[in-house]
């Protein structure tokens, strides 16, 4: 319970954000400047599109349960819930939170993490059985957070379907996991750091920001669902750790 063992400010999972001191290429060779890749309006549009896609894919919002993964996934779930309620008046506008801390596979490799709350929407009577659960996270990266989320979900009940919505998919998957709804696919290198800033968490305007260390290499990884990680596994360890 060291003070230093609590969750870091800006990211919660390897899959959601990457922050690395880097000697590997960034998208802007030779510069370390942070780059805003999505602005406030972009994010709003992306969320609206995702809301429509959710309704379209599920033919409405019946049995739909939005569960945000802390920290920023919760705010995104809230915003999606508002939009869904506008699109589908039958939708309650509720959302829940799903804390995955106790299901993570890296607990022994990181400083102790504070356990967050798992709260289901009140109308569910505490069960997600036979529901359509949409997990909401800010950045999809290694996929390990989502793996933990699926395990956590399994302990809560047996949903009919589980889907995944991510504001940003930056690639570099380490597990066979993909998102059903993506706000923006961002080609990144592992060494770069992708940050989602939300007004109600971080203050200021909403933004998705990429930053990376200056480098003399210009290689850019067009990371996507099928992109191979460009770095060897040992560096990946360092990567995950520094992301804390």
């Amino acid at each position: 319970m060291h003070p230093g063992s609590r969750m870091p400010e800006s990211s919660t999972t390897p899959g959601s954000t990457s922050e690395t001191p880097s000697d590997t290429p960034s998208t802007a060779p030779g510069t370390a400047a942070a780059r805003t890749v999505l602005g406030e309006a972009d994010i709003a549009r992306a969320l609206t599109r995702i809301a429509h896609e959710i309704v379209e894919r599920n033919k409405g919002a019946a049995d739909l349960v939005l569960l945000g993964i802390p920290t920023r996934g919760v705010q995104l779930a809230e915003r999606l819930a508002e939009r869904l309620a506008q699109i589908e008046p039958a939708f309650s506008g509720e959302f829940g939170t799903l804390d995955v801390t106790m299901y993570r596979d890296d607990l022994r490799r990181q400083p102790t993490r504070a356990v967050g709350q798992t709260v289901l929407p009140g109308s569910l009577d505490g069960t997600i059985d036979d529901k359509v659960v949409v997990l909401v996270d800010d950045v999809l990266f290694s996929g390990r957070t989502i793996r933990a989320a699926l395990d956590a979900l399994n302990d809560l009940g047996r949903p009919r379907v589980v889907q995944l919505a991510a504001l940003v998919d930056r690639g570099h998957r380490e597990l066979p996991i993909r998102a059903d709804y993506v706000g923006k696919n961002l080609p990144t290198s592992r060494s770069e750091r992708v940050r989602v800033r939300l007004a109600d968490v971080d203050g200021g305007a909403d933004a998705v920001v990429i930053s990376g260390a200056p480098t003399d290499s210009a290689a850019t990884d067009f990371a996507g669902e099928n992109a191979a990680p460009e770095n060897a596994a040992p560096e990946n360890d360092a990567d995950e750790r520094s992301a804390r």
Partner: peptide, 8 residues
């Protein structure tokens, strides 16, 4: 750390 738990 402190701010993060507050965030939470």
């Amino acid at each position: 750390s402190t701010s993060s738990s507050t965030d939470e």
